[in-house]
Every structure is written in structure tokens, then in C-alpha cells.
Design a protein around this nucleic acid. Structure first.
Lengths: 215, 215
DNA sequence: GTCTATAGTAGGATAGAC
DNA sequence: GTCTATCCTACTATAGAC
């Protein structure tokens, strides 16, 4: 705690960048504001990273890696789609509080028009996707839904929706809560299909065949 | 076409702001870049709007109002949740091409740390929510799902996810496609529950009661 | 590795001529 | 309403002392 206070300057800058993105957004993040946040000289950003882009990229990578690793064990305990939904809401609450998905959202917005940042944020999202996909693949094996739904695609949809929810909550907290509750309610639907067991499996299989042939 | 070319300068600035947000993102949008996009003098932004914030707010309002109105008739033709999913994908494709949800996403990112823009983007999202909620309310009346799912909350979740998908596609087009396909596949699940009819309705009702009492 | 100082550019905003 | 010119601030980035 005594000499960790001024850690490595490099590390401090990365953490300061994360903190600045969280509190000031991408539009309010600059070499000067980041340096001020960390109490570090502004010129050191260019000494250690060569430019803003590399620092932001590193910040994106670090914050996402840390967070995803944090939830790996939690994901492993999940035994049903319903439990996954509950875990998702837990994680959402934790991320909301720590503000790390908010950082990813800011960089993702910037990545829309900056190819380098776009690549970096895509990689960061991929870290989430990999974890979610692993859980989904495991869970869908035992479910009637497994015949119909692609775990890779679904995990990408979930990750994207996760970011969207974070942004939405940031401007309408009340509405965000209602949205999360609705997703919980949709979990009921999943449960029903799962508990219907073989009957649902047959119905789903039939539907899939018809959908595949029909269009 | 002859004198609409230089429309009202005020209107031109709004359209230029939209275009600039789309192509340069919020970080690359300034009074100077907007003015350059529209071939308008930079000082006129402050004459007509008093400042950047008011211009961006107006741009947000206008682009969203236009787009939502465009889809009102399309929404009215939707007769089932499955059709709604298809309509959603259509609209997503159109918005992707025209880039208007991209503008909303940029402003939403900025709205996370700017209270004024936050209010504006919340209002813009509410325009989408109102339309989707109307359709959902109508459709859920005749569905077993109507007993379990809140149309207001679900329409908010859908709107948030819509924005998230747009951002995700912007950095990973291939992954975005897979995600959209997975959502289509989830539609199968909805169909199954809907076509199970009275049986599903009874199962859903039982589940809702248990969920309400259980937690 | 860290500091000060500074170059050079781009930002929001205003004054005043037309 | 529109233009030029300008103020002042903030930005990225570098040079050079320590």
C-alpha cells in the first residue's frame, strides 16, 4: 500500500484513462484530463504510449480482461438458462456500479468512426462473448432450445444488448429497471419451454424444419 | 430543387450536424466540422442555436422523429410477435444503411456524462419506445405471453438492445449478423409457446404465480 | 523517467462590418 | 442573416533540461 500508491506510471496512466472515460466520456477524455486524473505529467502519456490511441487501446484491453476474469467462476456455477439470467443481472449490477461496461461503451462509440479503436473494442467484446458462449453451449446441450439456437450468435446478441442496456440506463434509470424486469419475465418463457421437455423438443424441431424450408 | 438546395440555414445546420455525427462520431463533431459539412459559416451555429448543445439536441430530436414516423405504418401491419421480429430486422437494416440509429448511439454515449444531452437522448429513445410498446401491447393481448411480460418494460429492453446491436455491428459486422440470426432463432421459441395455445397459457400462468411467490 | 516549456492546431464563442 | 476577423482556451505532440 505504501509504494503501490504510485505504482508504475504506465499503470497509473492506464487506470487514469479508465477513470476519465468513465466520468467524462469519450468526448471529455484527452491527454490533459487523463493526466490530471492521475496526477501525472501530461507529457508522460506520449513517452509511455506514443499517443492517445495506444493508451485508450490498452485501457480498453485491461479493464475488460480484469472484469471478464472476475466473473469466470460465477459463470461456471450456472446450471440453467434461468440461472444464467440471474447471473447476468448480478453482473450487470456490479458493472453498473464499477462503471467498466460504461468505459467499453464509450470506446465502442468512438470505435464506430476510428478503425483502430474499432478493432480494439471488437476484441474486448470478444472476451465477453467467449465466456458467455461457453456457458450457453454447455446449457443448450441439455435443452430443447439447443436444436434451434446458435450459441455463438446468441452470446454476441447478449453482449451487444448488455452494452445497449448500460447506455440506456445511463439516461433513464427508471426505464432501465423496467427493461431488466421484462427480461426476467422473458425468462419465464424459457423455463416453460425447458420444462415442457420432450414435447417442447418435438415442437421446436418441427418449427425449425418448417422455418428452414419455408424461407 | 433550385432553392431547396440552400434550404433554411438553420435546417441545413441540423442536417449537417446529423451527417457529421454519423461520419465523424461524437468525438469528431465540432462547430467547425459541422459547418464544413454543410458549407455554412461556422459563426452561424452560434447565431441560430446559441451553442453546440442546442444544435446537437435539435439534431437528435429531428432525426429520431423523422425515422420513427417513417415506420409507424410498418408497425401497424404487424400481426404476430414473429412478424414483429421480421419488421425489426427490416428496420434495423434500413437504419443501418441510413445511419440514423448510429447518430442516436453517438449522442447516447455523450449523454452518459452530459446531463442535458442525456435528457435529449432519453426523450428520443422514448419516441421509439412508444411505438414499440403500442405494437407489443396489441400483440400480447392475444398471446399466452401477455400474462407474463410487461409491454412497457419489454419495449424499453428492445430499444436498448437495438442501439447496442447497432454499435456492435459497427465494429464486428460478421458477429452482428450472427447475433441477428440468433435472435431470429429465438423467434422460434416464441412461436412454439404461442402455438401451444391454451396449454402454454396454463403453464405460463403457473410459472408466473410461482415466480411471484418464490422471490 | 520525469519535468518545464512551447510549437502548432483546433476548439467554442463573440464583435462588428456588410 | 451572413461574413471576416479575432479572442481565448484546450488539444496533441515534441524538444530539451534535469
Amino acid at each position: 500500500m505504501t509504494d503501490q500508491r504510485r505504482a508504475d506510471t504506465r499503470d497509473r496512466l492506464i487506470d487514469s484513462a479508465i477513470e476519465t472515460l468513465r466520468t467524462h466520456g469519450i468526448a471529455g477524455t484527452s491527454a490533459r484530463t487523463i493526466a490530471a486524473t492521475g496526477g501525472v505529467n501530461q507529457a508522460l502519456i506520449f513517452y509511455h504510449f506514443g499517443g492517445m490511441e495506444a493508451l485508450l487501446a490498452e485501457a480498453c484491453r485491461r479493464t475488460t480482461e480484469r472484469r471478464v476474469a472476475l466473473y469466470r467462476d460465477r459463470f461456471a456455477t450456472v446450471r440453467s438458462l434461468r440461472e444464467l439470467l440471474a447471473a447476468g443481472r448480478e453482473i450487470h449490477a456490479a458493472e453498473k456500479a464499477s462503471g467498466n461496461v460504461a468505459v467499453l461503451a464509450q470506446l465502442l462509440a468512438a470505435g464506430q468512426t476510428d478503425v483502430a479503436l474499432g478493432k480494439v473494442t471488437a476484441d474486448a467484446l470478444a472476451l465477453w462473448v467467449v465466456e458467455i458462449e461457453a456457458v450457453l453451449t454447455r446449457l443448450l446441450r441439455g435443452s430443447p432450445l439447443g436444436d434451434a439456437v446458435d450459441a455463438g450468435g446468441l452470446s454476441r446478441a447478449v453482449s451487444a444488448a448488455f452494452v445497449g442496456m448500460e447506455l440506456y440506463e445511463g439516461v433513464d434509470a427508471e426505464g432501465g429497471l423496467a427493461a431488466l424486469d421484462a427480461l426476467d419475465q422473458l425468462g419465464v418463457l424459457v423455463e416453460v419451454v425447458e420444462e415442457l421437455g420432450p414435447l417442447a423438443r418435438r415442437a421446436v424441431r418441427g418449427r425449425v424444419r418448417r422455418a428452414a424450408g419455408g424461407s
